[in-house]
Design a protein around this nucleic acid. Structure first.
Lengths: 219, 219
DNA sequence: CCTGCAATTATGCAAGTGTATAATTGAGGG
DNA sequence: CCCTCAATTATACACTTGCATAATTGCAGG
């Protein structure tokens, strides 16, 4: 009659760590850090809370590792897009921009995730370093792609162009995540391509699968 | 010998509500929702925790009002920039863009504030409505300014241009807030003006107080 | 000066938090 | 088959959180 002890299966360390990290990321994505309690994380990972302490010295450790995993995953996704992209520089840049402005990259959950970590990133020096590294890597990719476009450009100009393009991508991504339903399907991709194209001085809208809008940006 | 009861002054309701809301916003800005406990808020407002319940039925109420206050304040700041701006449409747009990309608008604290509310905004319908209203108002301002620029434009084109410009502003704002120190002073303003100018097809860099960079965006 | 009331403080409580530690049990090697 | 040990669960604890309620006290109006 006394409460029966819960049955369990022994799993490999890597599997359990992954499950816990994934659970933590899901919870943060949905409800912020406040929702990612040890009990909730363990529950979602199909495990009892004590196990967390067996794999991570502290909850902050788990959070730190989750952040690193998130960043790694984003960098991977990014690289995957570039691998599948065509060789033509303009088409390549277009594919990169468009990929960032549609699901699964443009997703309210990802925005929630990003927001959920900000304060911790500001406090923790390690996490701040990971953040800076990831951001600068992203920008470096953009710089490469811009440098490959036709026409000569100075290094300083390439830097500024990359920062601007990065801004457009991030900003539109943010808008799309924050107000899904405020835009037509594919609209943000179109707008992003037109804007990035205007900035670098090359028409990118032709490289988009959806039909371009009837009127161009510049009147 | 027993603990002496703390002295206090009676204040007007408005003053106390303001103090509590300001305290809550400061704390959220610094450390996220997790740092804004009733005790911490009361402490920073120079008051004991019980008083919060006297002015707000629940902590969530206080948070909701704080969010509304924040949004109102941002809209006000925005309007103030436009009032002080020159009459020439291009100069006006330039002033608007530049203002968003330097302190006090571009500030890590504001980003923290914004991030701290995201999850609550996603859950709470009232807060979501305030958010949407504020965002669309901001975009409407941009549409007006773009429509006032020389050259004819269709309404649909103006909409797309405004979304793109909004994206540039938000994205560069985000980058500057997230990685202060990664940019030279005034650099993001320059980049923002050049990018927005490229998008709307008008040179805006001339309207900036700082000397424009030696090379233009388009090669 | 006093008197009453609302603004404010003080105290208490149940629920939830992260963490420490002890008790179990699955599963591989002999 | 059993034995061992790490993986896992269970329990406990000190602390924090939001909220409720009672006890005070500043201050305006007579």
């Amino acid at each position: 009659m006394a409460g029966e002890r819960r049955k369990f299966r022994r799993e490999g360390e890597e599997k359990r760590r992954d499950a816990l990290i994934t659970a933590a990321l899901d919870l943060i994505s949905e409800g912020g850090q406040g929702s990612a309690t040890v009990r909730a994380i363990a529950d979602r990972a199909g495990v009892t809370p004590g196990l967390i302490r067996h794999y991570f010295q502290t909850k902050e450790d788990l959070t730190r590792e989750a952040y690193r995993a998130l960043m790694d995953r984003m960098v991977e996704d990014n690289a995957a897009v570039l691998e599948a992209a065509p060789a033509d520089p303009a088409a390549r840049l277009a594919a990169f921009v468009a990929a960032a402005l549609r699901p699964p990259v443009m997703d309210p959950g990802r925005m929630g995730l990003w927001a959920g970590f900000i304060h911790q990133v500001r406090r923790d020096a390690d996490m701040a370093a990971v953040h800076a590294e990831t951001y600068l890597g992203y920008r470096a990719r953009l710089e490469e792609m811009i440098a490959a476009l036709p026409g000569p450009r100075e290094a300083a100009a390439i830097r500024r162009l990359a920062i601007a393009c990065n801004g457009v991508i991030d900003g539109l991504w943010l808008e799309g995540c924050a107000l899904p339903g405020a835009f037509e399907p594919g609209e943000l991709e179109q707008i992003g391509l037109a804007a990035v194209g205007a900035i670098v001085g090359i028409d990118l809208t032709a490289h988009h699968p959806l039909p371009p809008p009837s009127t161009e940006f510049a009147p």
